[in-house]
Every structure is written in C-alpha cells, then in structure tokens.
Amino acid sequence: MSEPLMVLHYDVDGTDFTVAGEASGAVKKVLKQLGVSAEVIRKVAIAMYECEINMVIHAHGGFIDVEIRPESIRMIHKDVGPGIPDVEKAMQAGFSTASQQVRELGFGAGMGLPNMKKYTDEMKITTEVGKGTIVDMTVYIK
C-alpha cells in the first residue's frame, strides 16, 4: 500500500446526536474538491455516516482517521464504547440493540453494518467487550 496523499482526523462527539454526520459531510466535501468520482464519494459518505451514527448511538463517540490514496479511501473508526459481543449477529440485516429514542430518529433498524459492508470493498471489525471497537473500511478507486 502506498503512502497516503492526505490523512484527515475527526473527533466524534458522543453526546450530541444532532452533529452526527459532520465528519462524513466534511470528508465528502474534501473528496469532491479532489475530483474523486461521484460513485466513490457516495460509497465513502454512506459507509462513514452509518459508522459515525453507530459511534454516537452505541459507543459515546470516538475518532475517525481517513487515509486518502490514489487507489483507495480508508476510514478507520475507533471508539472506547461497550464493544460488540456477537459481530456475526450484528452484521445480520435487521438485528439491532438501539434504543427506542434512536429508532424514532430514523435509525436503529439493524441496517448500519450491512450497509457499511455493502458500500465498501474491505471491512474489518476488531472489537472487545468493555474495551471498544475499531471498524476499518476501504473503498477502492477504480
């Protein structure tokens, strides 16, 4: 893998649901300025947004590093939340542990992780209960 052309770092506030999506919106803007194709931008924006929402609703926030290379965009999401006890189950469409409050906001339908998987070319989840979760996703620029 080549050296990244650009590395972006974002802190995700875990206390304010209304700002969830700020980082994803900012990355989308940067990629647009760099002339990345609309298809790649959309994939990155959706996967990152779903993950950002998850960090806020499940994990009290965290941080995101985005590595931009000529051949790929990599997004590393780290939190120190509760961890995911059963990743396989969490990956199933429709499975969710989200609160009623989150559902009322239009999320928590158990589509987050499946959507992230669908829109990325590589996705790796490293998680430990009580310690936190790292979701590492890459979208290839073809």
């Binding site: 209304t18 999506g21 919106g25 989308k28 924006a45 906001l105 239009g106």
Partner: peptide, 17 residues
C-alpha cells in the same frame, strides 16, 4: 418524502446527493 423532521434527515440527504 418523509414524516421524520430531525436534522439526520438532512444529513442523510446530504450523503445521498
């Protein structure tokens, strides 16, 4: 078209163009 009126509707729209 949606019956939800919170800010995440706008952010979702933003991500989806």
């Amino acid at each position: 078209l949606t019956g939800l009126v919170n800010g995440q509707v706008i952010r979702t729209a933003e991500m989806m163009d």
